Computed example of a mutant assay.
Amino acid sequence: MDPEHQLLFFFSAIGAFNGLFLSIYFAFFVKHRNRANYFLSALMLVLSIRIIKSVFLFFYPFISELFIHIGLSACALIGPFLYLYVKNTTTRKNYRNRYWLYHIVPTVLVMVIIEYLYPYRQHRGFWNFFGFNFLYTQWIVYVILSGIVIKSAFATLVKKGKKMTDEEIWLISLVAGVAIIWAAYRTTEYTSYIVGALSFSFVFYLILLLWFFKRRKTTPFFFAEQTKYANKKIETGEATEILSRLNILFEQKESYKNPNLKLADVADQLDMPSHHLSQCLNDNLGRGFSAFINEYRVKEAEKMLATDHHLTVEAIGYECGFSSKSTFYSAFKNLKGTTPAKYKKIYT
């Protein structure tokens, strides 16, 4: 490969390989993981696989057919994962079922069946027709659906005097970036097949650069534990449902007895973003997650202090989920106005 082609290979592949690393990071190393981040990880993964397939097929036309089919399947999943990420990031609904499977499983099944019946090497004409009339159509339909989900963000973008939130900037950049990559692939018959891969590298680093200059002094919202929604209050009916499910979870499973229980753990069990649950507690109960969970622990400690005369006060605190004696005493006195030891004496 001559120097010119080596340089072209480098610039067309670098974005894809960095996308793979970013996908792994979002899946396994983000501190506050949630379903939306998993979808973002999956989106970066399928985009990167699609681009890598394009790069190697362009420079090495005789690569494994399996590799080509994997790349084509990844292409079919770009749109669904983009939509699922945008939907999960912005939604206020608490989906209890596996609704996302309806977008992923049928797509995978269709691709597996078609790839089995029409191998790429023997049916290139079919794949050229199928690619332009199904894969790219399905891709752009999901991009449009994602745009509809964040239509309020686009309205803010064109409205003078209204400041956009970090989340709105990020989502618009992501949806627009995926649309640009789609357009680059869709127009390869007028340019070159490698333009699609080059566009991914360009969009990938452009978004990172944009975000760096925009948020260089703060942490991007998807790395943070919470995102504040100052003017997006949760509706009363929805808040009531969330609190009801939370109380049922604590009363039936007694999750509060786990001293290492975190907001993210409970949010995952309720199938909702951590910041959404935190906002619900703060807006409707006027307290954070720690205060809320300590109320359950103190309530359980009251029962045990009054009825269990075999355990020490400290042991009861640990049984109820407190991680230390000092935390137990502080929370109990704050809520009951007395220490656990004095409270226990009343019943002994």
Rank of each mutant, 00 (worst) to 15 (best):
F28E: 12
L246T: 00
S146A: 15
S146N: 11
A155Y: 11
A230P: 07
F9D: 08
N37D: 14
A197V: 06
F212E: 10
V141R: 10
L7R: 13
M111V: 02
Y85S: 01
Y329T: 07
V108A: 14
N294T: 00
A239C: 05
H275E: 15
N88R: 09
F332V: 02
Y329F: 08
E241M: 11
A224I: 02
L72W: 03
R92I: 05
I234R: 10
A74N: 04
K93N: 13
E4P: 07
N247K: 11
I140C: 06
N294C: 01
S64E: 10
K53I: 00
P340F: 02
G71V: 00
L263A: 06
N88T: 10
F322I: 00
K160I: 08
L145S: 08
R121I: 12
D271L: 11
I148W: 14
P259Y: 00
S278P: 05
F134D: 02
N258H: 04
L57V: 13
A224D: 15
D268I: 00
F130L: 01
K336S: 01
P106W: 00
T218F: 04
I14W: 09
K325W: 02
G161N: 06
G147F: 03
L57R: 12
K93T: 12
E167G: 07
K333F: 06
T219Q: 14
R297W: 04
E168M: 01
S73F: 02
T219S: 08
K160H: 09
D2C: 04
E189N: 10
K151S: 14
L198W: 07
V46D: 05
L335E: 09
L246K: 02
Q138H: 14
